[in-house]
């Protein structure tokens, strides 16, 4: 049986208690995107400043459980300074960490595709969130920030 320590690793609680990059940014130049989990009321607000192909600044806001807010904090730290391509790679790697098979039907994968997504991507603190996989109900808490990031990147990538 997975224990609470698997879910609530110290680094997660640290990000929850002291979220990184919390705040707001003027829009424009920042782009604001919001993610909601209507089932539990978790909310993620994300400000992205993209210059050229680089995420030069990130601020986060919102409210929710420790997993959703810690994941948001970790995400903000992870994508700041990354190129758009690197940020997208992080999204894929994080979803692979959550055992989310993007391109295959359930049960079809042998895990090799997930490993491929993870290879060569430095997840750092984010790996602490892997324990969430043992608590399937909470996976959506961890992925909310990343879905919001994906949405934000898609929106800033659309030529205006």
């Amino acid at each position: 049986m997975p224990g609470l320590e698997d879910l609530y690793r110290e680094i997660i609680l640290d990000h929850y208690r002291s979220p990184r990059n919390r705040g707001e940014l003027p829009t424009p130049p920042a782009h604001k995107s919001e993610g909601f989990n209507p089932l539990c009321g978790d909310e993620v607000v994300l400000y992205l400043v993209v210059e050229g192909d680089k995420v030069v600044d990130v601020k986060i806001g919102g409210q929710g459980c420790s997993i959703s807010q810690a994941s948001t904090s970790m995400m903000s730290a992870a994508v700041k300074g990354k190129t758009l391509a690197e940020a997208r790679q992080l999204i894929s790697a994080f979803k692979a960490l959550m055992s989310i098979h993007e391109s295959k039907l359930e049960g079809e994968s042998d895990g090799a595709d997930l490993q491929a997504e993870l290879d060569g991507v430095a997840l750092g603190d984010l790996e602490a969130l892997q324990g969430v996989v043992k608590f399937p109900v909470r996976i959506k808490c961890a992925t909310l920030a990343w879905n919001t990031l994906q949405q934000g990147l898609d929106e800033v990538s659309v030529p205006s």
């Binding site: 224990g3 609470l4 609530y8 539990c40 978790d42 929710g64 420790s66 997993i67 807010q69 608590f135």
Partner: peptide, 13 residues
């Protein structure tokens, strides 16, 4: 300081 979902998770233990 503790979100309802975290409370519920710990109580499930």
């Amino acid at each position: 300081g503790i979100h309802a979902h975290d409370i519920s998770q710990v109580l499930d233990e």
